[in-house]
Design a binder for these strands. Structure first.
Lengths: 340, 340
DNA sequence: GTGAAAGCGCTAACAC
DNA sequence: GTGTTAGCGCTTTCAC
């Protein structure tokens, strides 16, 4: 026998008052609406007693707002993204928003599905790390005036707001740091993806290398989450075949982690001969032996700026204040990039 | 200037037909309701042209169903859970359900919030790996006849359905395998959590050890995601201080991974002297050197059974068919548990 | 101070 | 075959 969930009306009937009154009390507008203290107390007691849970679907239909934001990143298990996610979640909770997380796996089809799914369910805003090829869906959201903030990378053709870092500068500084430590034959291992942040990192590496009068040495791995072992093989082959390399700059933190395993598997002592630096920091790098240097993104600042822009959009739907932010990261030097 | 999103009514008006007709076509009931082929085609063309997206909040309010399920696990980045999650997602999609994933971090407060959040938003069903202390919320859901299936562990006091494995048997088999390989001094490293699956694994270990006439040697690590380094220290200390240990059985895959790092850090050659087996498999174990033996849960079968029970509940809300499943896992022997 | 009632966008029973 | 309409549970304007 099915117990129907109590509705506002059931409560109003039980208490012999109107739904309006119950609704006001429920939303903490009792005082404001000058409902008597006693009535408020009575209603609240009853709400608590029956453990009333409002139907948020109905509320959303009425108010047009779900108070839900989505945070779509490449891979939520990547510590860079999950750290930012965590801060975003905290800020949102404080402002009475919930956050749904999801991983796009950098796959357009999947991302499209996710965007439609959430848009149809009326989420209030999107924070997206856009995979290549997603321009159309993003413009669709923009046309429909759904708040969108891009993160980690921008889409140059699009009038969308974003918070990114200066990838070129970061990569250049990282490479320069290896050069300053005395390394002369610095390889760059990156992901073969046509995305602006990857191009910028590569360009930064090349700029530093050429300024120093060295020659670039680049390995590009296909982006393919399902095929980690084959990436490993490529990295191993590359390292084994280029015996003269004395340092490696990895373009992402997950590449660094794969790379470190490869280096270890080739020869347990090899890690002590190579200079290593990673773009993007990771908890793992502090625990590794040797500790691994990294170019760290300002996680806290990024999350805060992201939410500032998002809340601004949420509040002033009309007013299109364009916010395009390029932040600077910091070089975190640890043992792996000291001169060996 | 805000472009209002078109509603069913806008379409009906534009086409000079009723919302009913549009609704039927939209839901693929055109044929069934004997709407003329031409009209169907016309409506579909229009829907496509304006890129109509139904307001699923309104639909949910009307139908009482969101076609969303939640999958709540300890840590979605744990490969055991994410594998099951992936299969669940696939099955759900085929049945036109979406799945939301979230991590409870084994924290009651967080899990309560999550359950309320989703329940108020009217999700259709919950698949939950219950953290200790969550009994009350689960019974609340059950009382409200919300479909719930527990996973990975049961709550003995509760009349909730579940799909788990035979932890006792698995742990016993794993331990026995190490004994059969000739190890005599087998330690068990587990998590200090008052949860039945952990007790069962410990009991299985002890049973095998005592049958063989050996004595148990157990290390319990506090469950605390935020404090991985201190867990590492405990494991290292334990291994260093018990010089006579010749094998270790880890109670979870994440413990095994921590443990392997510890062993490596103590002495790179140590791994070749110790017998190792892990409860729960992981992709990582096949890549490691040596490859790591594990007691694998039947991921595919678990996910399928889980969804079978869930769909059964979803379809027959009334009929309470109790489904409590205890599946058997399989021992996957790899290099780490061969006699050294 | 409190209540009546409209309406958010959709579905589906019923009417014609 | 297609249209009319009630109603899902809630918020909020307006009336008293």
């Amino acid at each position: 026998m099915k117990k129907k969930r109590p509705s506002l009306k059931d409560i109003a009937d039980a208490l012999n008052i109107s739904t309006t009154t119950v609704s006001f009390v429920l939303n903490g507008k009792g005082e404001e609406k000058k409902i008597s203290k006693e009535l408020i107390a009575k209603v609240e007691a009853h709400l608590k007693e029956i453990n009333y849970k409002p139907n948020l679907v109905a509320r959303s239909l009425r108010t047009g707002s779900t108070r839900v934001l989505v945070f779509m990143v490449e891979d939520i298990s990547n510590s860079h993204f999950s750290k930012v996610g965590r801060i975003i979640e905290d800020i949102s909770y404080k402002n009475d928003y919930r956050v749904l997380f999801c991983s796009t796996e950098n796959d357009v089809k999947r991302t499209q599905d996710l965007i439609h799914l959430f848009h149809e369910r009326q989420v209030d805003g999107f924070i997206i790390v856009p995979p290549p090829g997603i321009e159309k869906e993003i413009s669709y959201l923009l046309e429909n005036e759904v708040p969108v903030v891009l993160f980690d990378r921008k889409i140059p053709e699009l009038e969308a707001d974003y918070v990114i870092i200066n990838n070129f500068e970061g990569a250049k500084q990282s490479t320069q740091h290896l050069i300053d430590s005395g390394y002369k034959n610095i390889a760059f291992i990156t992901i073969d993806l046509d995305q602006i942040q990857m191009h910028d990192r590569e360009a930064g590496y090349i700029a530093a290398i050429e300024e120093a009068g060295f020659s670039p040495n680049i390995l590009k791995i296909p982006y393919d989450t399902s095929n980690i072992p084959s990436s490993r093989e490529k990295i191993k082959k590359f390292i084994k075949e280029s015996k003269d390399i004395d340092a490696i700059f990895f373009a992402t933190n997950y590449l660094s982690q794969s790379g470190l395993k490869c280096i270890h598997q080739i020869d347990a002592k090899l890690i002590n001969k190579l200079g290593i630096i990673s773009f993007d920091d990771s908890n793992f790098f502090e625990m590794y032996s040797p500790t691994v240097s990294a170019f760290a993104q300002p996680v806290d600042e990024m999350a805060n700026q992201l939410m500032k822009i998002m809340f601004n959009k949420l509040k002033n739907k009309e007013q299109a204040v364009s916010s395009k932010l390029v932040l600077e990261g910091t070089l975190v030097t640890r043992e792996s990039s000291l001169k060996k």
